[in-house]
Amino acid sequence: MRADRPLVAILLLCLAQGAAAVSRLAVVGGTEEFRTHFTSALSAQLVAGGLPAPAIAAPRRSDLVLALGDEAFQEALHLNRPVLGLFISRNIALEAFTAGCACSAFFSEADPVRQLRLAQALFPAARRIGLITSPETSWVAGLLAPYAERESLLLVHTALADSNALARELPRLLPQVDLLLAISDERLYSEATARLILLTSYRQNKPVIGPDELFVQAGSVATSYSSGADMVKQAARAVLDFAERGWLPPPDFANVFSLRLNSHVVRAYDVPMVDPDALQRQLEAGQ
């Protein structure tokens, strides 16, 4: 648990005390193909972690339900079984958690603090960080502020109602900052706005970090993200903990992650540090 997340700290809840049997797991959500691959990989991880290979059971008869995605997570909450949500929107996960569910979750969003650390590692000279949020993601500013203060970064925050104001506010924000930290927010960062955001930032020579793999593929510099394989590892750790101690960790960002860098954009911005392995180690070490 991180000290800079008071909400999460307050909401820490033990689902059960002592060791819990995890002989029957249920995996719900996602496509069938994804689920199959996910389950296989998870089983292997659990076996590698010393747990007997759990049986895959129907959700209502399982010891723990792993729910992939928001929809599956919300449905699983009605099963009266412990639920571990994976790739869950932070708002949905916290809402369920504060309502007293026997659940936990790893968020689908990349950890904004880790994204900021990634930005620092790639652009050490950048001291003024641009941040745009919608009402649904305004919490990010509060989350980043203590870290930014500690690192002597200036967080220039613009709150927008929706993406309609982007075209007007983005050109106003960019001259005041050294880079734009794009956060997971479908209202602001989507297929519809990617072109506007990336072209405007190129024009003003301001790199964009985040928010996800697709945006990096589209033209932002880099992002950290949790792939399915990362989430397998993350889930395996949680299940092993659950089996050993009988409780799930509180909802949080996944701390098993991958990096995606766009080599063309990295080169265009003359990024001085580009060894992804070293970068990954640096970010992992700081978690």
């Binding site: 996910f38 399915g228 989430m231």
Partner: peptide
């Protein structure tokens, strides 16, 4: 198991 099992674990599935 891991290599083939995790190779196509892209989330959301088929997003790209």
């Amino acid at each position: 198991v891991s290599p083939w099992a995790t190779a196509d674990l892209r989330w959301p599935p088929a997003a790209a």
